[in-house]
Amino acid sequence: MLSAQDLLVALKLLQHDAPTHSHTLLGKPLGLSQSQVQQAYEHLTDARLLRPGTWSPVRAALVNVLVKGVPYFLPAPQQGDQLVCGVATGCGAVSLPCVETAPLVWPYAGGESEGFPLTPLCPEAVTAAQRDPELHRLLALTDLVRSHRSSLKERSVAAQRLEQAILEPVAAY
């Protein structure tokens, strides 16, 4: 069974410069331990989201899981109508027209944005996103797909952009 941390590792592995030669080095920017990264590797390989014996993601399969599966097994239900401070996600972190009057944020005391609270994919996602703008973009698009606050149009456009972001590097070869 995949966990949210497994998907965080998978999203990081989409980057060409992900340090795949060491579980510790891969886990450090994600806030994950060596054992958590090893477990994620096993889960991702078992789920056929990594090519066996490599750290290479099966990009098309990952798109399917993020767009079609995550909204059901890792949904982001509405947390309330009170605005909170936090780290921007969803439309507030990617250039996408929003229906909401306020953006979505991951509640975080050190955050600089204000918006409706949304539970991050996993607790480590907030800090990892702050360290890595590309990972932040992928997490924000994933949040739009899994959020109950997103309109159908926002979810659809986010799913298209997520698919493009994941599959685009393959088309460049």
Rank of each mutant, 00 (worst) to 15 (best):
M1T: 11
Q5M: 06
Q5D: 14
D6M: 08
A10N: 10
L11T: 11
L13M: 10
L14I: 14
Q15W: 14
H16M: 10
H16G: 12
H23R: 09
T24I: 11
P29E: 06
L30N: 02
G31T: 11
S33I: 10
Q34G: 05
Q36D: 11
Q39L: 14
E42M: 08
H43G: 09
H43S: 13
T45H: 03
T45P: 04
D46Q: 15
D46I: 07
A47D: 12
R51E: 15
G53A: 02
T54F: 03
S56W: 10
R59V: 07
R59Y: 10
A61S: 14
V63H: 00
N64W: 14
N64A: 06
N64R: 08
L66Y: 03
V67G: 00
G69M: 05
V70D: 11
P71I: 01
P71N: 06
L74H: 00
P75S: 00
P75V: 03
A76C: 11
A76S: 12
G80M: 06
Q82G: 01
C85S: 11
V87W: 14
C91S: 13
G92F: 12
A93S: 09
A93L: 10
S95M: 08
V99G: 08
E100W: 09
T101C: 06
P103L: 10
P107N: 08
P107W: 13
Y108N: 11
G110V: 02
G111R: 10
F116G: 07
P117T: 05
L118A: 11
L118H: 10
T119S: 15
L121V: 01
A125I: 02
V126D: 01
A128V: 00
A129M: 06
A129G: 14
E134W: 05
L135W: 05
H136M: 01
R137H: 13
L141F: 10
T142V: 05
V145L: 01
S147T: 07
S147Q: 10
H148K: 06
H148Q: 10
H148C: 03
S150M: 03
L152V: 15
R155E: 02
L162I: 02
L162Y: 00
L167T: 04
Y173V: 06
